[in-house]
Amino acid sequence: MSGRTGGRPELVIFDCDGVLIDSEPISLARLTENLQRIGVPIDLATVARRFTGTSMTSIMAHIATDYGVPTPEGFVDAVRADTLRAFDAELQAIADVAAVLETMPDRRCVASSSDPQRLRHALTLTGLLRHFDGHVFSATMVSRGKPFPDLFLYAAAQMGVAPEACVVIEDSVPGVAAARAAGIPALGFCGGGHWSHDRAGADLLAAGAVRVFDEFADLPHLLGTWDRVSR
Results as ranks from 00 to 15, higher is better:
D77I: 03
E73W: 01
D88A: 13
R80G: 14
D77C: 06
V79I: 03
T71W: 05
T65G: 14
F75E: 00
G74I: 01
P70Q: 06
L91P: 09
E73L: 03
L91S: 06
P70Y: 07
P72Q: 05
F75K: 00
R80D: 10
D88Q: 03
V79A: 02
L91H: 10
D82V: 06
I94D: 13
D77R: 08
F75Q: 01
D88P: 08
E73G: 11
P70L: 03
I94Q: 11
L91R: 00
E90I: 03
D82C: 04
F87L: 05
R80F: 07
R85M: 07
A89P: 03
L84R: 11
L84C: 13
Q92K: 10
A81T: 00
F75V: 04
L84N: 10
I94S: 01
T71F: 03
A86C: 09
A86M: 09
I63T: 14
D66I: 10
A89S: 09
T65V: 14
V69C: 06
A64E: 15
L84I: 15
R80N: 11
V79Q: 02
T71A: 12
A64N: 12
A93M: 15
I94F: 10
Q92N: 06
L84P: 04
Q92H: 06
V79Y: 02
A78P: 00
T65H: 13
P72H: 03
F75A: 02
I63C: 14
G74V: 10
I94R: 09
A81I: 01
E90M: 08
A89I: 08
R80P: 05
H62V: 14
A78M: 06
A64M: 10
F75I: 01
R85C: 07
I63R: 12
D82M: 06
E73T: 03
T83F: 00
A64H: 12
D66P: 12
A64L: 11
E90K: 11
Y67G: 14
V79T: 01
P72S: 04
P70V: 08
V79D: 02
Y67C: 14
R80A: 12
D82H: 04
T65D: 15
R85T: 15
D77T: 07
D82Q: 04
E73A: 14
L84D: 09
Y67T: 11
V76P: 02
G74N: 04
A78I: 07
D66R: 15
E90D: 12
E73R: 06
T83A: 03
G74E: 10
P72K: 02
D88S: 13
A93N: 13
A64V: 09
E73H: 04
H62T: 15
R85A: 13
E73K: 01
A78G: 06
A78E: 03
A78L: 07
F87H: 00
L84H: 08
D88W: 09
G74M: 03
A89N: 02
L91I: 13
